[in-house]
Nucleic acid binder design. Structure first.
Lengths: 199, 199
DNA sequence: TCGCCTTTTGGACAGTTGTCCAAAACTGGC
DNA sequence: GCCAGTTTTGGACAACTGTCCAAAAGGCGA
């Protein structure tokens, strides 16, 4: 449409439009026509910018699994105890999930799409979550003055597993109270794998 | 095809064919033509037996979430301790997952499909998992001579959450050792919510 | 064997999809 | 204002989809 829009800006606009379309109606709904309509671009703009629909979807997958998701979604409280800090971080993730379920549903669908389309890439992107979670755990330890008594990768994996599980379960039954209950129990569980470190 | 096949048998055959097709290529691949080809039936047989593709997919969703999945996948060992019993049950589920990942991937996809197509039904079907898990936990308690010290629904939910999480994580990274590690830790966690009951 | 009724079939149809590309719109230099 | 070169567009195309239905095949009593 707008002639002054740079090619990169157009790619980005289409990717964002695709994410909105997918959130609304699933990956299947993200047809070339639906996406350009959402982005208010002419049909021709699609293959002017992307060589194929698959390329767009790959870029979408890449965009939403980009580096800082986990860290952004797990907000850390200032100056609370260990268990409260972990619980608050998980709660902040749950709040995000509740605030925009369609987005997280789209994310899950896209993750499955990636798993089918390019398993190697999906695996690589998935590794990022573990690294991010480890970083968060390191931050938590520092802030709360504790040391983890179990290998960080194992703790991180447990939290990733639980996060994925809570997401899937809540998306299915929308039982927020129950989700918060699980979340509190998990926080206590994780907090048990730490010991105070003397300053 | 075979004239002697009863209508119900034909429905069932198409449903099973659809599950295989979906496991192989996702829900999108389950076109009417692909399904009848997999079932070695003529195209016309499809709408002779189902009124629409959606009806088939609904039946598929209903079939795979049918009543005894959880119980069947969580095998209980005879005569082991509590933690070992829980660990073994989770391990038996993991073994099934590893043995047929495509099937479980298809199941996840179908669950998402159901969530979009008919959220109310999906929620109802999801409830079954909790009930089944509670039943399994009751069985475990009886066999191991213990009493759960936390509400059964909460324990069941934690296990469902973890099961879903382990499934999603393993499907993404195929790290079996790590999955077993999580599983052991979860078994210990759950086992901590029990007390011996004197006979 | 014939005729009649039910079951079964695959060709046809309208709609949608991803993709291409000839033409239109636009740009900047003269 | 005009032209050569570039960017942008939306109509066209072939492939595929779900669905329908007229015709073919099959069964069965006579």
């Amino acid at each position: 449409m707008n002639r002054r829009m740079s090619p990169e800006a157009r790619r980005e606009a289409l990717v964002q439009a695709a994410i909105r379309v997918i959130a609304r109606g699933g990956v299947a709904a993200a047809t070339t026509r639906a996406v350009v309509a959402e982005a208010k671009m002419p049909l021709g703009a699609f293959h002017y910018v992307f060589t194929s629909r698959d390329e767009l979807l790959s870029e979408v997958v890449h965009t939403i699994t980009d580096g800082e998701r986990m860290a952004a979604e797990l907000a850390l409280l200032e100056g609370a105890g260990l268990e409260a800090t972990v619980a608050a971080a998980l709660a902040s993730y749950l709040d995000l999930l509740i605030a925009d379920p369609d987005r997280e549903l789209a994310l899950t669908e896209l993750s499955l799409y990636g798993l089918r389309h390019d398993p190697a890439l999906a695996r690589r992107q998935h590794q990022l979550y573990f690294l991010e979670m480890e970083a968060v755990l390191r931050q938590v330890a520092e802030r709360c003055g504790i040391r983890w008594t179990e290998p960080l990768p194992e703790l991180a994996r447990r939290l990733i597993v639980v996060t994925e599980g809570i997401t899937g379960t809540w998306l299915a039954d929308r039982d927020t109270d129950a989700a918060r209950g699980v979340l509190r129990a998990v926080a206590a569980w994780v907090a048990a794998s730490a010991e105070r470190v003397d300053a």
